[in-house]
Nucleic acid binder design. Structure first.
Lengths: 357, 357
DNA sequence: CTGAAAGCGCTTACAG
DNA sequence: CTGAAAGCGCTTACAG
């Protein structure tokens, strides 16, 4: 049998119970804010907890408790690109690290081209008896409705990839959209000393996707700042809401006919692949191209030289941090950082090998 | 009292013991390769472990075991810059996440300008009864001697920041030095369409610091590749081993007298701050400056525009991964990745705010 | 070479 | 409102 360590019996529920002259069951009740404890006892115990700086042993706690916590992940499916695949992988990586603590993970994937699928999946989450949810609020109105329901049910939620200011989310994990746009401006400026640059927004619903517009604003802000000195850059812009290859090509052709002197392109999302594909065919054009996200097609164009810079948004880390943030809040009961801005990675053909996503 | 869960008693030492007709103490002996078990029993138990895919519950294991594992961190002190401070912070962050598993951490800091201090600290580590060590092999010969001693004592070690090919380290965690140099070449090339670039190595002992030379090689390789097309870039180089402000300024002045047409500088380490300080005083010079590491002074020059790009080497993550790698190997008994190349971050004035180190 | 039993620091029914 | 005791899945002396 084991000798009991009598020298440093200075922490733990047992010591608290001893000092308060109660049983450890009562201490446990206070620690977990369960009812059925007199105010006097509660106060006394809380004071002792303060005094000795009690930190519960999470190992023992999880081992003894058979309670299961269920987390839901509500994000787009990865039908079109592997961008959202990375979020999923990150969430699952975090899950594997903490599942021993009695966590279960469930994925709810919706179609980025179908609002209704978001609603369906969101309802499934609400019906599912979860203890926390990580979501990408891709459809603004629907997402707002969903998180309102979460608030009612006291179901904690974390935003990833883009946020919804004004909601009571536990945290936002993703890029600072405006500053990410500013960085795009700077990158274009490194290559383009003077001339015309085209901002390209490509998305089915550009009203809803205001996160693209926040990038555009950042981009404009940076360029305008530099223009105060030399006024060398002119900005044009185009919104493309029909996302087929052909429609995008036609839109760009139309635009270039109007502005044949466009020397640089800034594409506000991973759709830069479409612009790259288009430019690649016009073999005579040698323009600067900056866009977003390390999806496979984009990386090919980066290596080929068609794309100069990709801005990385760390989707894998977003997924990972979404889950660990829930864990910190729900299981460990710790304070979490409300705004978790990811580093905005600059990727070129020379360092792309070291970035997974 | 609790009801026992009788439905899924399909894993765990108890089940193994039941199937093997032995006690759980014997199962424990086999799991931990302790001796005092007959071959027949051992084989039978191992087979059952295979069969049911036994995964020990690390929570229960660490809770029951009062064993302490001690890790040592052997890195430079942060006297001159906060670069090595970041390594320390990363190691301590990892430590706080896993200390509940019975880990202790001890720091052994040496002076980058004093080989002897490395030797002293290395000896202290060897004398200290550790179960793992993370080290920066800043002094090549001394580090080689140290890790040879580690191998003899079966003390696992992990390299961070720069590696020592040919040693039996558990892992290397840091940048791919050659490719980091190539990236430097690409960044210079973005701004310099043609002209002369100066490679600057600044370090007390440049023979020992061959990691600077591996960056130089990468840089040259990239520039030579682009030169095959247009031959627009000429490379000069200078090694500065006297690292006082004045000596560096004098060396640069001498060099610029010889080559007044130098239009870009590539500094192979965090000493780019010295070059920036120098260039800042020659207010007429508008050259491109690329260097390494997000130390405070460098960041100031980046924001000011004196430095165009900083290449980040993720010191904090290096320290963090060093400790978690040891943990995975020593505590969790898992395979670890031998080469853990960090992403090579490109930092500009616009995205610097989102990188801590 | 092997086993019975106490213990790690908590949580959970159950009884009062 | 409160406590005694069993249990989580392991590890550790100790006795044989």
């Amino acid at each position: 049998m084991k000798k009991k360590n009598t020298t440093q019996e200075l922490s733990g529920v047992k010591e608290i119970a001893r000092r308060a002259n109660v049983s450890i069951a009562t201490v446990d009740r206070v620690i977990h804010n369960r009812k059925g404890v007199s105010d006097a006892t509660r106060d006394k115990i809380n004071q002792i907890i303060e005094e000795i700086g009690f930190q519960p042993n999470i190992l023992a706690s999880r081992l003894a408790s058979k309670k299961i916590n269920r987390f839901a992940v509500l994000i787009p499916n990865a039908r079109e690109t592997d961008y959202w695949e990375a979020h999923r992988k990150g969430a699952e990586r975090a899950y594997h690290e903490i599942k021993q603590y009695g966590i279960q993970l469930e994925l709810f994937l919706f179609d980025l081209n179908d609002k209704q699928s978001f609603k369906t999946q969101a309802t499934a989450v609400l019906d599912g008896a979860f203890h926390g949810v990580v979501l990408a609020p891709s459809f603004v109105d629907e997402a707002r409705e969903f998180v309102t329901a979460c608030e009612l049910r006291k179901l904690p939620f974390v935003f990833i990839n883009s946020d919804m200011p004004g909601t009571k989310g536990l945290a936002y994990i993703g890029p600072h959209l405006f500053k990410s746009g500013r960085l795009g401006g700077q990158l274009v400026r490194f290559g383009l000393k003077q001339g015309k640059v085209l901002i390209v927004n490509i998305s089915k619903e550009i009203d809803a996707y205001h996160h693209l517009l926040r990038k555009e604003e950042g981009f404009r802000a940076y360029i305008e700042e530099t223009n105060r000195k030399d006024n060398h850059i002119q900005i044009e812009k185009i919104d493309i809401t029909n996302t087929t290859d052909k429609a995008i090509a036609d839109a760009l052709t139309g635009c270039l006919k109007q502005h044949p002197d466009i020397a640089a392109f800034f594409v506000t999302n991973s759709r830069v692949r479409n612009v790259a594909k288009y430019l690649d065919r016009q073999s005579d054009i040698q323009s600067i191209l900056v866009g977003y996200d390390l999806i496979a097609e984009n990386v090919d164009f980066l290596k080929k030289g068609t794309i100069d810079f990709l801005i990385g948004q760390k989707p894998e880390e977003q997924g990972y941090a979404g889950i660990t943030t829930l864990f910190q809040h729900v299981i460990a009961g710790k304070e979490v950082t409300k705004e978790q801005y990811m580093p905005i990675d600059i990727i070129t053909s020379e360092n792309v090998a070291f970035y997974k996503n």
